[in-house]
Amino acid sequence: MGEPIIQMRNIEKHFGSVIALAGVSLDVVAGECHCLLGDNGAGKSTFIKTMSGVHKPTKGEIFFEGKPLHFNRPRDAISAGIATVYQDLAMIPLMSVSRNFFMGNEPLKKIAGISFFDHEFANRVTMEEMRKMGINLRGPDQAVGTLSGGERQTVAIARAVHFGAKILILDEPTSALGVRQTANVLATVDRVRNEGIAVVFITHNVRHAMAVGDRYTVLNRGKTLGTAIRDEITPEELQDMMAGGQELAKLEGSLGGTV
């Protein structure tokens, strides 16, 4: 395994008297899919928001490509190559796929000294990227609202990759999706990883994590329970760590291990 592209060391984050993160460490290597697991309230969202520049850590260090790093705004993280795809906020349904794809990164062309949105270029690139991702569009002007949830996640991932993301943070991309759509998104994650991009995959679904993950870090009540490598851990162990042990074990008996 190569050098980590980003290292988070003993990250602590306090909100007033609430300790959301109590010393979490994690590193991500290019070309791996690092799954961040945890139940609701475990601190997953706070942690990735620290990684993507939304929150400043109260304590702890972040190294990006070996150098210490301080983000002041999400924009800093984006320009450093850290892209985050949020579950519901990935796309704007009323806007066309092409306008969404280039939102915040609009291509410009100059006509008589005035900069215009280069629709021709945007449409061409969008259609190309969508074809690569296996999404059928009627046209680049089709509204995102007409796409399925899985397709929206895929468009958002394609967008991040197209704009040079080195680290792709996916915030529960599969939690609201059906079986087929989930499979499509997981296949997309796999393809992106194979292109050499570091993927941080947040989920509370162990089966989705096992499907694509190379390494697993489990968060519980703001603390990390360590990082495990694929093949060294079973889904049951991951499940137990997430739930913090006992209670789920009892439940599992009656549910037949389907959680």
Partner: peptide, 18 residues
């Protein structure tokens, strides 16, 4: 494009750098 994005979903637009 920013006008559409700001009205469509201000938070999503902010995340995208608008």
């Amino acid at each position: 494009n920013w006008i559409y994005a700001s009205g469509g979903d201000a938070q999503a637009a902010r995340y995208a750098g608008v």
